[in-house]
């Protein structure tokens, strides 16, 4: 199982660490379900990057008046796919280059900053000479 190849984010990019599920029909890379969409009339999924770019181009070719948007464009315009198209356009048309942070901690739990702070390596007991984090260290040994 390969990891999803999508880079999340807009101003700075980070890896999507979800397992890949299917390949994009356009670029052939593997992505997770969150980063794949099936276009109406298509049988294979497209990744948000490819879909976003296509939709941006289609939109640029159209008159930008509101009335030219169809229902599918509405779905796209308010979907994450729009952000991927927009960011691709933003990166290529201007001078902006996003920072890449690799895997950024996603704190989605009920633990707040105060809870997290006490688990810093420097807060460990008997740790006067703390050097570096050691992934081997684990307290769950029976």
């Amino acid at each position: 199982m390969e990891n999803c190849n999508m880079k999340r984010g807009f101003f700075f990019l980070r890896d999507c660490d979800h397992p890949a599920h299917q390949s994009c029909a356009s670029c052939g890379k593997a992505f997770c379900n969150e980063h794949l969409r099936i276009k109406p009339g298509a049988s294979a999924p497209f990744c948000l990057d490819c879909l976003g770019k296509t939709m941006q181009q289609t939109n640029q070719n159209k008159d930008k008046k509101v009335s030219t948007r169809d229902d599918y464009y509405d779905d796209y315009y308010y979907d994450t796919a729009w952000c991927y198209g927009y960011r691709s356009n933003y990166y290529t048309s201007g001078s902006y280059k996003p920072w890449y942070f690799g895997t950024v901690d996603a704190d989605g739990s009920e633990f707040n900053d105060q809870d997290i702070r006490v688990f810093e390596p420097s807060a460990e007991i008997e740790d006067p000479d703390a050097e570096a984090f050691d992934p081997d260290a684990n307290v769950f040994d029976s």
């Binding site: 999340r8 984010g9 807009f10 101003f11 700075f12 308010y78 994450t80 729009w82 952000c83 927009y86 960011r87 996603a106 704190d107 989605g108 739990s109």
Partner: peptide, 16 residues
């Protein structure tokens, strides 16, 4: 509003 929330949401954690 909708595009801004969508764009900023890309750089926040899912539950933020």
């Amino acid at each position: 509003v909708v595009p801004m929330v969508n764009l900023i949401g890309q750089d926040t954690a899912a539950e933020q």
